[in-house]
Amino acid sequence: MTSILEFIARLAVWLLLAPLLPGIINKVKAWVAGRRGPPVLQLYYDLARLWRKGVVLSTLASPGFIAGPAVAWVAVLAAAMLLPLGPLGASLSFRGDVILLIYLLALARFCTAWAALETGSAFEGMGAAREVSYAVLAEAAVITAVLTLSMQSGSLVLSAMLAPSAGTGAVLLAVGLFIVLLAENCRVPFDDPNTHLELTMIHEVMVLDHSGPPFAAVLHGAAMKLLLFSILLVQAVLPVGKLPAAAAAGALVAGVLGVTVGIGFVESLLARAAFRRVPLLLTTAFLLCLFALLVAWKGGAA
């Protein structure tokens, strides 16, 4: 009984807290720019409104157009349930769960790209092509980061891998994972979440034709993915598992807030990178993770 209650509480954390992050980022951006900015809870209002709205479907779209966002949302949520929440641990934990997490995110990517290509729009095709292509580089960085953590901890269970800090290579890993976070969550300098309509967009342009409840699923899924990557980053770098429960919870929350505010600052201070720079940035992230891996490898051998 308690386990069911705990599971529901955990689900609620993910479902209810996730939309807070984009609100915080927007507040930070507004503050830096000297504006008042939208309320922190703006995404909640948007989601509630979208859930009640009707849907406009492209004449070309198949049922997969609505199934795509649904499957992607479930995939991100399932990946989130695998991720330990500091002192609470994960709701489900087994050897190799980290691989499942990576591939669940890949499933979400496949479904988003699928839905984008349903419409036959050149814009959305462009976005989908970029999304799946850049994912090749991002995947290399993520696998390397996971390999680092697994070598460091000698384990393949997320909760054990994320418990200690990443050791000497922590800074390298932190920067590498932060770049991947920005790329995977369509933030500046890879993408501009303020607009859907630019020729150089990657992720945002894929959701042009969604509306109503499916669009709510897309937005909510994106917010959950951002929270997921933030928590992953914080736990990979900070020794959350080694602290007492209260301190660990505090560290986790502070860390996620720090990452969120950091994204806000990055977005305020940086312009979007020139399009041809994107592979370079992702390769840099991969190399950083690779150096962290080498550090972990040598550290373990010594």
């Binding site: 859930w51 009707g54 492209s58 995939a75 814009f123 409840p213």
Partner: peptide, 27 residues
């Protein structure tokens, strides 16, 4: 099972809210 459930929920929600067919919005 979850995937199937989510697809059904989202479809039925879209149905209740009303679905309109239109041309792909090409900017």
């Amino acid at each position: 099972a979850l995937v199937a459930g989510a697809v059904v929920v989202l479809w039925s929600r879209a149905r209740t809210n009303g679905v309109r067919r239109a041309m792909t919005w090409d900017c």
